[in-house]
Design a protein around this nucleic acid. Structure first.
Length: 187
DNA sequence: CCTACGATCCCCT
DNA sequence: GGGGATCGTAGGC
């Protein structure tokens, strides 16, 4: 996308909604991002809250890199690093490229189960801890500017701290999201 | 359709 | 030594 290098070097609250509708590929496999969550460094739910550690070191590095961490010991989740130790968790995408590869990695051809959910998405795109810290503006990554899509805003899921913050963004009406977002507002 | 729960690893305190 | 930014399966309705 234009301004690719600096796109993430802004507030996570600006970057997160603008990523909805963008297309992201890894080695040519991926699709349209339809759901994300923002994690700010002053937000108790963020991994970077409380300062730099071994696991979250990438979040404190330069913006525009991938922060990949292991979740529940069994899966990987992918974030785009933004400014000041904040990041956008990529929660779901609508598969458009490399459907057969995704189906093989996921062990299903059911479209809804390919990349709806952060763990499924990482598996479908072949992302693991080896991608942690890699720049997003170079291969194997490709990013393309967002379509003009209607956005729904709601509460983040799966967290216990700061659960009331409306920092989850999705494409309105998408069938490739993880679940219904009870809309707080639209834009 | 829905809810409940176990798996399984690192990182962190 | 505890606890997840989750997923799949099992079972009930």
């Amino acid at each position: 996308m234009k301004r690719r290098g600096s796109f993430c070097a802004r507030s996570v609250h600006d970057v997160a909604p603008e990523l909805v509708g963008a297309t992201g590929l890894v080695d040519g496999v991926g699709g349209k991002i339809v759901e994300v969550e923002a994690y700010h460094h002053e937000d108790p739910a963020a991994h970077s809250f409380g300062g730099r550690t071994q696991r979250n070191a990438t979040m404190f590095g330069p913006p525009g890199h991938a922060y990949v961490y292991r979740s529940y010991g069994v899966l990987w989740c992918v974030n785009f690093v933004c400014e000041e130790g904040s990041a956008v968790l990529i929660r779901a995408l609508e598969p458009t490229h490399g459907l057969e590869v995704m189906a093989q990695r996921r062990g299903t051809t059911e479209p809804r189960l390919l990349a709806a959910g952060p763990g499924r998405l990482a598996q479908a795109l072949g992302l693991t801890g080896e991608h942690d810290g890699l720049p997003l503006d170079r291969p194997p990554f490709e990013l393309y500017a967002a379509e003009d899509v209607a956005i729904v805003v709601g509460l983040r899921v799966g967290i216990t701290k700061a659960a009331e913050l409306p920092w989850r963004y999705g494409e309105a009406g998408s069938k490739s999201r993880t679940s219904r977002i009870r809309p707080l507002r639209r834009s």
